[in-house]
């Protein structure tokens, strides 16, 4: 009798400990509110380039996380990326003309969407689209732009001959990609977001 009781107590303790550990793992190490918080409204925004943005990245305003990205997909009509985000319905007074931009947390951190409030007195509602957007900054583009401006001002011959070639090589994939997409779209719609520098 004593033996069975010890066994039962030990088993109970073990099972309890196991479930406590599981509970700890699922509540303390994950962001559970992203799954529970269903009281949210969705807003979409189009970006020319989403960079490293991923689903479930945060949407923040003044540095406070107010929502998460639900999904990112390619919009075949506008030929750019459509980002759908869930915003906590607690924050239902975001002006309609707010500006959404893709930012990077730290040098190596993940990317997120930062909202900057506009001045309109109409608020964003479920299913609305944010019109003013700013794409992710692609580091390679910045570098190639910088190298180009260096190259045109450059004084040394060797610098001039080397650097533009390098930057051309790094831009090649984009230039190859761009005509493809434009061809498909030509009959459908005039592409809006081709600000590609020359």
């Amino acid at each position: 009798m004593q033996q069975t009781r010890a066994v039962e107590i030990g088993t109970g303790l073990f099972v309890f400990l196991g479930f406590a550990a599981l509970l700890f793992l699922s509540t303390q190490t994950t962001n559970l509110e992203a799954y529970i918080g269903k009281n949210a409204y969705t807003v979409t925004a189009h970006f020319n380039n989403v960079g490293g943005l991923k689903p479930r990245s945060p949407v923040s305003m003044s540095g406070v996380t107010i929502g998460r990205i639900e999904k990112i997909e390619f919009d075949p009509e506008q030929l750019n990326a459509m980002v759908t985000m869930n915003i906590n319905s607690k924050y239902n007074q975001i002006p309609e003309d707010s500006d959404a931009s893709i930012l990077t947390a730290g040098l190596l951190g993940g990317q997120y969407i930062g909202l900057v409030p506009g001045g309109s007195d109409r608020y964003l509602e479920n299913g609305d689209e944010i019109q003013l957007t700013q794409s992710a900054v692609v580091l390679e583009n910045l570098i190639s732009k910088y190298l180009f401006s260096q190259g045109s001002q450059g004084s040394d011959d060797s610098d001039e001959s080397e650097e533009p070639r390098e930057s051309n090589a790094s831009r090649e994939p984009e230039e190859l990609q761009e005509p493809d997409e434009m061809q498909e779209s030509r009959e459908a719609q005039e592409p809006q977001g081709s600000e590609e520098p020359k």
Binding site: F14, L17, G18, F19, A20, A21, L25, T29
Partner: peptide, 16 residues
């Protein structure tokens, strides 16, 4: 079969 997942959870929690 019952013990293994519970043991693994304990291992992970203690490891953390």
């Amino acid at each position: 079969v019952i013990s293994m997942p519970l043991l693994a959870s304990v291992f992970t929690a203690v490891g953390l």
